[in-house]
């Protein structure tokens, strides 16, 4: 009897054995340390980018004084995070969003909405997130997809590709597409391949160390079940083609009938996760790298098959040099 009561007391007293996580103080030093530690343990590109994160700590912790105000603290943290050179690394507060946008701001824009509007015309159709039309007189289909956050259903693809089925080629434009859902990337790409192909690899961190990674896991792309398109296809990209759109370009590059034309895509191959700081600010960072089919990183973008920028002369004439290059490519391919 006594033993039983003793056992019950022991079990009941194990309340104190609950798992705990280091809780940082809600002061400038605590917020800074939390931010640095979360990235130290969870960010996935330290080794690939050859970043000495300890050195970064020394550099920025000196700027954290006891009386630093919120604006200044935010700026210091944002500058520290910019050392990662990653568009997926953001800091969110109720008064500002910290970001690193050098991956497109330092490059030619290569996309102008008013010029694209000329090609789409006024009678273009909309299927989910897709805007599409037929470019005459070449009879080339043109689809503009501005964000992978806009949904594209199987039915949307059936209608869009069904309408463009008789075109001699399709231009699929993902310029200025900042990403969104990877599921749409797979769904759309599956309509352009007639067979199952290896489209890339994914990896995840297995621990807090900078090099604690799982084995590469292959990603396959199967042929879509709805209306498909296997004629010459061109994907247009620019430096603002980022994240899921960058992944789409990387996948499409493996399909034999597809060419990438335009500028190098913006990159952003790390699947972003979120966390938060003791003062309630939200932190976003790359957590799980996605590789292309040759096991190479695409964090800094995917090179096009045909590199072309919008020329100044064409810009003045409201001509999209990249679309014109794509049209010439399809015309040439279909002549043969």
């Amino acid at each position: 009897m006594k033993r039983l009561f003793f056992l019950l007391i022991i079990l009941s007293s194990i309340f104190s054995s609950c798992v705990k996580e280091t809780q940082y103080d809600n002061n400038p030093k605590g917020v800074f340390d939390a931010c640095w530690n979360i990235l130290d343990q969870r960010y996935c590109f330290f080794s690939y980018k050859n970043i000495d994160w300890d050195e970064v700590y020394e550099k920025y912790q000196k700027q954290i004084g006891k009386n630093i105000n919120q604006d200044s603290l935010f700026t210091v943290l944002n500058n520290m995070m910019a050392e990662l050179k990653d568009g997926h690394v953001n800091l969110y507060s109720s008064f500002n969003v910290g970001r690193y946008w050098d991956w497109f701001e330092d490059y030619p824009q290569n996309y102008f909405q008013h010029i694209t509007k000329r090609y789409l015309g006024n009678d273009y159709k909309i299927a989910g997130g897709l805007k599409y039309t037929i470019l005459l007189p070449d009879s080339i289909g043109y689809i503009y997809y501005g964000s992978f956050s806009n949904s594209v259903s199987e039915a949307n693809l059936n209608y869009a590709l069904g309408n463009l089925q008789n075109c001699k080629g399709i231009i699929f434009d993902v310029r200025n597409n900042g990403g969104g859902s990877l599921s749409y990337s797979d769904r759309i790409a599956s309509r352009f391949t007639s067979e199952k192909i290896l489209s890339g690899y994914i990896q995840h961190k297995t621990g807090k160390g900078h090099d604690d990674f799982s084995e590469l896991y292959p990603i396959y792309l199967s042929s879509g079940t709805g209306v498909s398109y296997y004629k010459p296809t061109v994907v247009l990209a620019n430096r603002s083609t980022y994240s899921a759109a960058n992944n789409f370009v990387s996948i499409m590059k493996n399909i034999p009938t597809v060419k990438i034309i335009g500028d190098k895509s913006g990159g952003g191959s790390g699947l972003p996760f979120s966390s938060e700081l003791p003062n309630g600010w939200t932190l976003r960072f790359s957590a799980s790298p996605i590789y292309d089919a040759s096991k190479s990183h695409t964090e800094f973008g995917v090179d096009p098959d045909i590199k072309v920028d919008i020329s100044d002369d064409d810009f003045i004439k409201d001509v999209d040099t990249i679309i014109e290059t794509a049209k010439r490519y399809i015309n040439k391919e279909t002549q043969n």
Binding site: K205, S214, S288
Partner: peptide, 15 residues
């Protein structure tokens, strides 16, 4: 899941 493994990797990709 593993430390930084996404549900996309588990359920969509099948790892």
């Amino acid at each position: 899941p593993h430390y930084e493994q996404s549900y996309y990797e588990i359920f969509s990709l099948g790892n």
